[in-house]
Design a protein around this nucleic acid. Structure first.
Length: 174
DNA sequence: ATTGAGATTGACT
DNA sequence: GTCAATCTCAATA
């Protein structure tokens, strides 16, 4: 939370501050892609922390995750919303939004992937050694500014309060 | 081989 | 508020 997520795709640099995330883990979490073991799609989730897991959701949109923890544990953090920073005009064109609707640039997991040009080709990239996608320090966030609640859009394991978001940040999805 | 559900979004009533 | 867009996976045959 508070870190900057950046991409460089075909020379276009875009980035945003992470303001909303959800945690997924390999055991005890029925909502996780890693819960039933490795598949061709979820293989990246079982690597050691630092890799980028991107998947296609509902056949239409992409979602980006940061793999965490040790190898074989299947834990990752889904990026759900960003506060736009660099390359806003590039993001607006990718999202096909008019100036009056830039508010909707990156306030959702599918939206931010479209804005930053993230798709399945970036799944498996190493955040620490990639020329196309990276993370960097941006803002120090106080714990008191981070709120939590149930994860959005899932029907299993809804009792875990593993959605985290910045208090009063206008870019949060809901 | 077929079917139904899913970590979403935008268009429409 | 409803619904369709259409890829991946697991369950069924």
């Amino acid at each position: 939370m508070g870190m900057k997520l950046s991409t460089r795709i075909n020379g276009h640099v875009t980035s945003g501050q992470i303001v909303e995330v959800e945690a997924y883990r390999g055991d005890k979490d029925e909502a996780s892609h890693s819960f039933r073991g490795k598949t061709k799609r979820s293989e990246v989730m079982f690597r050691e922390g630092g890799y980028c897991y991107v998947y296609l959701i509902y056949g239409m949109y992409h979602c980006v995750n940061i793999v965490t923890e040790k190898e074989d544990l299947g834990c990752a953090v889904l990026i759900r919303a960003l506060e736009p920073l660099d390359g806003i005009e590039t993001m607006r064109k990718r999202r096909k939004l008019t100036q009056s609707k830039v508010h909707y640039l990156t306030n959702g997991p599918g939206k931010l992937c479209q804005a930053l040009g993230i798709d399945k080709k970036l799944s498996g990239e190493d955040f620490l050694n990639s020329s196309r996608i990276s993370l960097s320090s941006y803002k120090k966030i106080k714990k008191s500014q981070i709120l939590s609640g149930p994860r959005i859009g899932i029907t299993k394991s809804t009792h875990f309060n593993w959605r985290f978001y910045l208090k009063d940040n206008p870019w949060v999805s809901k």
